[in-house]
Amino acid sequence: MTVLVLLDHEAGAIRQASRSAVTAALALGDVHALVTGDAAVAAAAARIPGIAQVLRATDAGSAHDLAEPLAALVASLAGEYSHIVAASGATAKNVLPRAAALLDVQPIPDVVSVVDAETFVRPIYAGSALATVRSSDAKKVLTVRASNFDPAPAEGGSAAVRDVTAPEAPAVSEFVSIERSKSERPELDSARVIVSGGRGMQNEENFKRLEPLADRLGAAIGASRAAVDAGFVPNDYQVGQTGKIVAPELYIAVGISGAIQHLAGMKDSKVIVAINKDPEAPIFQVADYGLVGDLFEVLPQLEAALDKAG
């Protein structure tokens, strides 16, 4: 079996998430990679160990990863592959289902575990349950959750690169512009790091003391329901069942006791840090790293430690 992996790139390098997808694909068979972008990107893909061949899309429509030509390209290449895989992300979610439709295949998104060549585990209901599904399609189209697969190394391989082009089709869409998020605070549901405050922040004024830490980490700021109810911050800060479900790489809970609503809203975070003066606070039961102490003393120490570490 040979698997085609769609790789995503940024600033000339293959994204780490895509290298995780390579790991997932290697569990299924030999791996070919499809990249868009310039020769440098294709070269970067070729250096990932385990990739046997790199297909480089060269047509103009691929430049901005527009779904219509890219999906048509993937579908046109699909013939020789048993699986088509990509890391879950905006590009793959835009392109792969469309390609799957062209192939008359039901895609399997957000795979967290590969059971066998046709059986996969994926979260449903925002992670409240894990479904194991078996596909009866001849080909499988899947996206994988990068955090569940270790990324393949970036260097060490030497695959051949071959140019491919999408089949001719009328252009129904055009790229207009892209606006990268500025350095200002990221949105809660897309932030890589979240610093969240709870009742322990005591008041609206003190809640602002989270900002220097969030600035240093490029983090979004969230809040527990209790902090919202107490009026420290507006309700769009709320993380939790009735607010938002978040799953950043790093979640720092400051002065949050860990009410179940809050835990339900952030328990899928990759790494959870809890800072609380009450060693019995439920938040410590889910935290990877717990620091018991007065948050008003800990916060400046953390900032200092981050500055020192550079």
């Binding site: 039901q106 894990l130 599904v133």
Partner: peptide
């Protein structure tokens, strides 16, 4: 096209 083999609760997170 997909058969649901099983549905389970995700494993609980453990204290670090």
């Amino acid at each position: 096209r997909l058969t649901i083999v099983s549905v389970a609760e995700p494993p609980a997170r453990k204290a670090g």
